[in-house]
Design a protein around this nucleic acid. Structure first.
Lengths: 166, 166
DNA sequence: TAAAGCATGTAAGAGGTTACATGATTGG
DNA sequence: CCAATCATGTAACCTCTTACATGCTTTA
């Protein structure tokens, strides 16, 4: 997942490690430690997905290679209906890299997965035992899943170029 | 984090592995694979936090030991303002295990952390470059953080025994 | 009777965290 | 001048994922 994120960001242009880390944090995607970041860049470099050039000062600036682009394209095309919300958000961050024709499908598949989760969350909430904190947790899951679906619906409507009626 | 979850669930009474896994999924806390679950139970057993007794059929039923209770109490008392939402949800699932007097403090610390994140999310959104998907992502972060704060406020109001005025 | 769910487990490998180490530059 | 931020990296340790293995019971 980190590899996917790094490749996606490097698709926009050359960046150095520290910068990639900051961008990832700014996008609210994930907080990456240095002990995860630099070994990940080395892995990608070793397998030829990215290439390093010396930048200013201590900087090692990386750019994506054709092999890296191919790998990125494989990764963004695959779709696991059970993927965690963090993975989907990452996919969304790079949705613009997908041909326009296939974007709607990604959003709709996600919607179907969320509707399934909502059903499950409602079932768990209806069967709720436990104290009020446990019940609050189950209720939260129902509400936040509903909110996520509503948000996706706006994205889908925008993708269709339609004004949302509310 | 898995250890914390397992100890917390075993505080409610003896359970076997498969059952713990299901409960964790039902609470929407996390999906645990068997390759994570059983080694975790072994770890806890080895360090004396839980003890196994043979149950029906192939079942190994675990119960928490006094050492395990002590460990759980250490874990639930610590509070990292930067903790991920998954960790907080877990903490909430076990909030009833904390003396009533300290529950409000946990919720209020969480609220302060979320307010900080909201500020950061708004700043990132205001500075937003990128395509519409990136912007949608940043907007999502703002809205979902706001929703989380509103939800926490209801919890806090409930904790104070006050009716929410809306 | 076949599939799905119950129930436990191991092994290899990948990847992460935390702590440590270094050193330049910038801002209060 | 001191702290923070920039910038990169290593090493030990831990834990998770994935795949495999086994075998029973329930349900369609």
């Amino acid at each position: 997942m980190l590899d996917f994120a790094l490749l996606g960001l490097l698709r926009d242009g050359p960046r150095h490690g520290y910068e990639l880390r900051r961008t990832l944090a700014d996008l609210g995607i994930r907080r990456v430690s240095f002990g995860a970041l630099y070994p990940a860049l080395r892995r990608l470099e070793r397998r030829g997905a990215i290439a390093a050039v010396r930048g200013e000062g201590r900087r090692r600036t990386y750019r994506i290679t054709p092999e890296g682009i191919a790998e990125f394209e494989r990764l963004i095309a695959e779709s696991d209906p059970d993927e965690a919300s963090g993975v989907f958000r990452l996919r969304l961050a790079f949705l613009g890299a997908l041909p326009e024709a296939s974007r709607l499908g990604v959003l709709e598949r996600r919607r179907r997965a969320l509707v399934g989760r909502l059903r499950e969350a409602r079932r768990a909430f209806a069967a709720a035992g436990g104290d009020r904190y446990r019940r609050a947790l189950l209720e939260y899951r129902v509400h936040s899943t509903e909110a996520d679906i509503a948000w996706l619906d706006r994205l889908i409507a925008g993708e269709r170029g339609v004004t949302v009626n509310r």
